[in-house]
């Protein structure tokens, strides 16, 4: 392919010649495919795209993308990505991380990247387990998870990544799962959002945590998926159920929708800029409620990188850098010959 005129690409152009080393059946494959299918649609150019990852099965990702890539150290991808973006804001930066990488060892960096609103796509592959280190429980593992390090079941409460992201001040929060056909659209929306776009992708670790998401991903259970669309009513189960707001308790409730008459049932319309409702959607306990998927929140604010560059330029404007002069100021005196 001609590197100088990267006008139109195909998913194939985004594949590397590196042998992909995930376990057969791992959800990471589907995510890789979805990203490779997304790139042509967003008009990306491979040389202007950088994938930055931490450590974990998920963080192998950059090796398989025919772009620039940096497989960094455990938990630190957000910080490395911040340096990349500040040094060259023209680059399209994608951060790839796992639940352990982003929320355990790197939780601090994730929080600050979101708080600052660095312009990038932040994909968190949540398999609710430490895959690469052979299956210890993770900060997103459900209570009671039996793993090599918790043979009698974990006793601590898991973190909810999207709630964490909203709490950290993220301006774009979305959720999808590895094999969902909607993933490409979610990624496109994430890319269209200017700022830090946080996307949690439920990913099946077939070896250490198989089918933990089966409750809503399996064919028979897809009625438990609530796909959110801006301006559309919050309907699921083929339009037979919806989400309403109980005005007395100010909480969400599931209602039956009869004959498609969602208005009569009081089903609310999704407004991606409603932060309070976004908080409620990500906190809905699964079981009594469906799993909220799609773009949960999208309300852009100025980005960190643009603010840094703007201040650098404003402060430097009208000043001529003169190092000789700089080092010659302060408490000076002249010794005559």
């Amino acid at each position: 392919m001609n590197d100088m005129t990267p006008i139109k690409t195909t998913p194939k152009d985004w594949e590397t010649d590196q042998e992909v080393r995930w376990c057969p059946g791992c959800g990471d494959y589907a995510i890789l495919k979805a990203v490779q299918r997304t790139m042509p649609d967003i008009g990306g150019t491979p040389e202007n795209t950088v994938f930055v990852s931490g450590i974990g099965c998920s963080s192998r990702f950059p090796y398989y993308m025919e772009t620039y890539g940096f497989h960094t150290i455990h938990g630190r991808a957000p910080a490395v990505a911040t340096g990349v973006k500040l040094a060259n804001p023209d680059l399209d930066v994608w951060v790839i991380s796992g639940d352990g990488d982003a929320l355990s060892i790197g939780g601090n960096h994730t929080m600050h990247l979101l708080r600052r609103n660095l312009d990038c796509q932040f994909l968190l592959f949540n398999n609710e387990i430490y895959g690469l280190t052979k299956g210890q429980y993770s900060p997103t593992s459900r209570e009671g998870t039996r793993s090599p390090s918790t043979p009698f079941g974990s006793v601590d409460r898991p973190a909810t990544p999207c709630a964490f992201a909203l709490g950290a001040g993220a301006r774009f929060v979305a959720r999808t799962y590895d094999v969902a056909k909607q993933t490409v659209d979610v990624l496109k929306a994430a890319h269209a959002h200017k700022g830090a776009s946080f996307v949690e992708i439920f990913q099946n670790c077939i070896v250490y945590n198989a089918d933990v998401f089966g409750g809503f991903t399996e064919k028979a259970n897809q009625n438990h998926q609530l796909w959110l669309e801006n301006g559309k009513p919050m309907l699921f189960a083929g339009g037979t159920k919806g989400i309403t707001m109980d005005m007395k308790s100010l909480s969400l409730q599931v209602v039956d929708v009869v004959d498609g008459n969602w208005e009569a049932a009081g089903v609310i319309v999704h407004d991606v800029t409603n932060r309070a409702v976004a908080h409620m959607l990500v906190e809905m306990p699964f079981g009594a409620f469906p799993m909220a998927l799609g773009v949960l929140y999208d309300d852009p604010r100025p980005t960190f990188d643009s603010a840094v560059i703007a201040q650098n330029e404003a402060v430097a404007a009208g000043k001529t850098p003169d190092l000789q002069k700089l080092i010659s100021t302060g408490q000076t005196w002249t010794v005559d010959a």
């Binding site: 910080a79 040094a87 960096h109």
Partner: peptide
């Protein structure tokens, strides 16, 4: 460009990212 990072690790990691870029 100066960047006051969230911690020492982010300070060097961001510097490495900038060097890469």
């Amino acid at each position: 460009t100066t960047f006051q990072a969230e911690d020492e690790i982010a300070a060097i990691a961001s510097a490495i990212g900038a060097s890469y870029a």
